[in-house]
Structures are given as C-alpha cells and as structure tokens.
Amino acid sequence: MIKTLLILMLFFTCSNSENSGHAENSLSPSSGETLIVYLSRTQNTKVVAELIQNKVGGELVALEKENPYPEDYQKIVDQVDRENEEGYLPPLKTKIEDLESYDTIFIGFPTWDMQMPPPMKSFLTENDMSEKTIIPFNTNAGFGIGQSFEQLRELCPESDILEGFSVEGGYEKSGVFLAIEGERKEEVSDQVDTWLQKLGLL
C-alpha cells in the first residue's frame, strides 16, 4: 500500500513539473512574456492586434496620447506633418511600468505620412527595447509600410526584430473607416495565421 502511494506521489509530482515548464515557455497571457502594443485610429490595427492575441496570447495595450489628435481628418494630417518635420515626440498617456518582464513585444500601427505615427515613435524612444524580440504589424490605406519598419529598426537597434506583417485597412481620406470586419476579417485572420506560422509562433 505504501509503495503504491509513493508511486502515485512521484507520478503527480513529475506531471505537475512538466506542466509548469510548458506554461513558462508558452506565449500565453499567464506567462507574462508577450506584450501587444498598438496604435489605432480607425480600429483596423486594433482588429489585427486582437487577432494576434487570440492566436498567441499576451497582454494587449492600446497606445494613447496625453492630448488626443483632432477628429477632423485634414487637421490630423496637418498636425502629423508638422510633428514629423520637427521631430516632435508627443507625450503619451499610456505607461507600461513592467515592460522589462516581457520578452516578446508585438508593435502595431497604421502608416501615417508614409511613416510610423509620432506616438509610436514616442513609445519606442521612451522605453528600452534592448535584447527583446520585436514583431511589427501594420495597417495602411493601400500605400504600404513606407519608412515605418525601417524607422522601427533605427529606434530599436539592440532588439531582435522579426519579419513584420502589413495589410490594407481603411481609407479615412475617402470616409472608409473600419474595413477589417466580416468576411474581410476572416481573410486577414488567415493571413495572420500564415505569418505567425512562418515565424514559428503557431
């Protein structure tokens, strides 16, 4: 009887140890290792961020400025143009106190002025990304990533930057806002699967 109990105790101890090791290495919210930071105006980048979270887990954080951009499209275009020309980095409302606890960080943003949006530049400038794995994703109005991924590499020279993902979203200039929904969302979900599989994350 005692021998049988000892065998059962050993079995459950080993099983729990194996399960614990698996949790530490997985890209799940409970591991605390994966962060998904995104900036989204028309919510297309947000949809992609949520798709990523559903597939690999992780903590989802929306990036916000202290002073929001104007709602009027032309006004925000003019303001972003000035900020890019002057190299201005807008103050952020969003603060991530425990950034050092994350090993893998997805960085998502739309293409603005054929560049990375100024608030995302602020985030990458304010926070130390050294020795972290950075995975960029992007939405755009059909004109691609512009300089944005190159700017990411310049701002994170000590990071391991993996292949990024880019997909067409809305076209705010023409009044097309949230475009990644319904059947289009399913198509983008499949594209995200292919990308994550290529990176070895699925």
Results as ranks from 00 to 15, higher is better:
I105Y: 13
L92M: 03
E126K: 15
V56M: 15
K93S: 06
N54H: 04
A62N: 12
I76S: 07
S122L: 10
Y102H: 03
K95C: 03
N54Q: 12
E85T: 05
G87W: 05
E126Y: 11
D98W: 03
P90K: 07
N84C: 12
D78S: 09
G108Q: 11
N84V: 05
Q79L: 12
D98F: 08
P68D: 11
L89D: 07
P110I: 15
L60W: 11
W112C: 04
A62H: 15
V80N: 01
M114R: 13
F106W: 13
K95H: 09
E100Y: 01
Q53V: 07
K55Q: 06
Q74D: 13
S101K: 15
F123Y: 06
F137R: 14
I105N: 12
E86R: 10
S130P: 02
P119W: 04
D103H: 05
Q53G: 06
P110E: 00
P90A: 03
Q79E: 09
L51V: 08
E64W: 05
I105F: 13
K93V: 00
Y73W: 12
E64M: 04
T111S: 14
M114Y: 14
D78I: 04
G57I: 09
N127G: 07
I107H: 10
D81T: 07
T94G: 08
V61I: 13
P117E: 10
S130K: 12
Y73T: 02
F137E: 13
G87A: 06
S130G: 09
R82M: 01
P119K: 07
E66K: 11
L99F: 04
Y102K: 14
K75C: 02
K95E: 14
A62Q: 14
K132A: 01
Q74H: 08
G108T: 07
P90M: 07
E126W: 04
Y73K: 04
D103W: 01
K75E: 08
P117R: 11
D128H: 08
Y69F: 06
D81H: 15
M120S: 10
Y73L: 08
N84S: 03
L99N: 07
L51G: 03
E71W: 07
D98A: 14
E66H: 01
L60E: 07
Q79P: 00
Y73A: 05
P118L: 06
L89K: 08
P117K: 12
V77P: 02
Q79I: 15
A62W: 09
L99S: 13
E64P: 02
G108P: 06
Y73M: 10
N67K: 14
G108C: 13
R82I: 00
E66M: 05
P90V: 04
E86K: 05
V80S: 00
I76H: 03
Q53W: 06
F106S: 04
